[in-house]
Amino acid sequence: MKKQIKLIAALLLISITASAQDGNAGINEATNQVKSYFDTGTNLMYAIGAIIGLVGAIKVYKKWNDGEHDTGKVASSWFGSCIFLVVVATVLKSFFGV
């Protein structure tokens, strides 16, 4: 009975060691896949920022032509959101070293 328990423990230890090595390989593979998509994601964030900027510019122009008083507030909020997207994409790209 003790020999069987020792054999089961040894097999369990070997399987745990093998699983740990596969886990490291899986984490490295996932890291490489995320890094490969990072440039595409950054470019997508820049494109979204450009579209938001165009929509914001149209809304601000319309408010300005209508003579509304909160045009400056709306312009600064749209401009700030575009700057935020560009800064976040740039910081993430430099932070992760991609």
Rank of each mutant, 00 (worst) to 15 (best):
T40H: 04
D66L: 09
Y61K: 03
Q21G: 11
S94M: 12
I51C: 05
T17D: 01
V55I: 15
A30E: 05
V74G: 00
L44P: 00
I8D: 10
Q4W: 11
L85C: 10
L12M: 08
F79Q: 04
L11F: 11
A18G: 14
K63H: 13
K63A: 15
S81L: 14
S81W: 12
W78M: 13
I58M: 08
H69V: 01
S81C: 05
K35T: 06
L11N: 13
V34N: 07
A75H: 00
N24R: 03
L7F: 06
I51R: 02
D66I: 02
V86N: 02
G72V: 06
L44Q: 15
G72N: 13
Q21K: 11
I16Y: 05
I14W: 08
A18C: 08
S94E: 06
N28E: 15
I8P: 00
V91Q: 10
S77G: 00
F96T: 11
I58A: 14
Q4D: 12
M1W: 01
A57G: 14
V60H: 10
A25R: 12
G56M: 02
F96R: 05
T40R: 10
G97M: 10
Q33N: 13
C82P: 01
S76Y: 07
E68G: 07
T90W: 09
S36Q: 13
V86C: 02
D22Q: 09
L92H: 00
F84E: 00
G41A: 13
K59R: 14
I83K: 12
G26L: 13
